[in-house]
Simulated scan of single mutants.
Amino acid sequence: MSGLLDEVLSSHGGFGRWRKIEKIEAGASIYGALWIRKGHGDALRGVHITAKPREQWISYSPFKGEGKRSVHTPSRTVIEDTKGKVLEARDNPRAAFDGHTAESKWDDLHLAYFSGYAMWNYLTVPFTFALPGFQSQEIEAWHENNETWRRLRVSFPDSVATHCREQIFYIDPRGLIARMDYGATVTGGVPTAHYLLDHRNFDGIVLPTRRRALRRNADGSAVPEPVFVAIDFDDIRFS
């Protein structure tokens, strides 16, 4: 574990606090140009999210209509009713994106998979970086917003569904993640600069309450418009 990673874990609440958590719940609105492009517009506004921190399991409710919810794991994505009756399901859901481009439309199970794995990562980073299979290395610093941001290059294990295997995380002077860079393979690999904003302490865990994902230029700078993904959290709860 790198010295920078130790600082980041401490600034976000500490791994000791994280290990006591069994469930994460959040209220959020998710919107932006990506969802419009994929044919789902405001489908994820006003959702309730439930996730398990120690396995990649996450659910959205309501999902594409009242009385329905999504359930995502890396190997299977399901849309079910509130009593657990399966309405739609897809095994090996990532394979359903084979051949997709940035312009490809999504069905409801594509949406459930992408929104599921992405949000699970967002709610569990940086604590997942301390788990077996993750590798992190500090790389050269970056200057933005009149600050110097230290950077971590993180390699994700194959067992974790995520945007891409290698991602860059920018750490502000407080030790908080201010930005992450990736190219999500299931959305065509578009270079992305994803900003984490307005961090708050939620029962000992510090997470951003707003996220904005923008296109990234070849020089690493972000294109301000359009906002491809916007996430606004109403609340995050741990139990």
Results as ranks from 00 to 15, higher is better:
127 F>L: 06
147 E>L: 15
129 F>D: 11
135 Q>D: 13
147 E>I: 10
140 E>G: 13
147 E>S: 13
104 S>I: 06
157 P>H: 05
148 T>P: 05
154 V>M: 12
104 S>M: 09
128 T>Y: 12
149 W>P: 02
101 T>A: 08
141 A>D: 14
145 N>W: 14
107 D>G: 03
150 R>C: 06
125 V>K: 08
109 L>M: 01
126 P>T: 02
138 E>C: 06
135 Q>F: 11
151 R>G: 01
139 I>H: 02
131 L>N: 14
102 A>Y: 15
121 N>D: 10
111 L>W: 09
152 L>M: 03
135 Q>M: 11
114 F>D: 10
137 Q>M: 08
133 G>W: 06
128 T>M: 13
109 L>W: 00
163 H>L: 03
144 E>T: 03
111 L>F: 09
151 R>C: 10
108 D>N: 11
120 W>A: 00
113 Y>S: 12
139 I>S: 01
145 N>C: 08
156 F>Q: 08
111 L>R: 10
122 Y>F: 10
130 A>E: 11
152 L>T: 08
107 D>T: 04
116 G>E: 00
104 S>L: 09
158 D>T: 11
137 Q>A: 07
132 P>F: 10
107 D>M: 02
111 L>E: 11
123 L>R: 08
132 P>A: 06
129 F>I: 01
140 E>I: 05
143 H>R: 15
159 S>E: 15
160 V>W: 12
154 V>S: 13
130 A>S: 13
143 H>L: 07
114 F>V: 10
155 S>A: 15
100 H>A: 11
133 G>V: 07
144 E>F: 03
113 Y>Q: 12
144 E>V: 02
105 K>Q: 14
129 F>C: 07
134 F>W: 14
162 T>P: 00
110 H>S: 02
145 N>H: 15
160 V>I: 15
128 T>V: 13
136 S>W: 07
119 M>R: 05
150 R>E: 07
153 R>E: 14
128 T>D: 14
159 S>I: 08
136 S>L: 06
121 N>V: 11
104 S>P: 01
133 G>R: 07
120 W>N: 00
127 F>A: 04
105 K>L: 15
106 W>G: 02
117 Y>E: 07
129 F>H: 13
127 F>Y: 05
107 D>W: 02
114 F>M: 06
130 A>C: 04
101 T>N: 05
156 F>L: 10
114 F>W: 14
162 T>R: 13
146 N>F: 12
147 E>H: 13
124 T>Q: 13
128 T>E: 15
129 F>K: 08
150 R>F: 08
156 F>W: 14
122 Y>K: 04
147 E>V: 08
116 G>Q: 00
146 N>T: 11
139 I>Q: 02
104 S>G: 06
133 G>A: 06
148 T>W: 11
111 L>C: 10
121 N>A: 12
156 F>I: 05
157 P>Y: 02
121 N>T: 12
138 E>P: 00
155 S>F: 07
155 S>Y: 09
153 R>H: 03
110 H>Q: 03
115 S>W: 01
130 A>L: 04
146 N>E: 15
109 L>N: 03
156 F>T: 07
161 A>W: 04
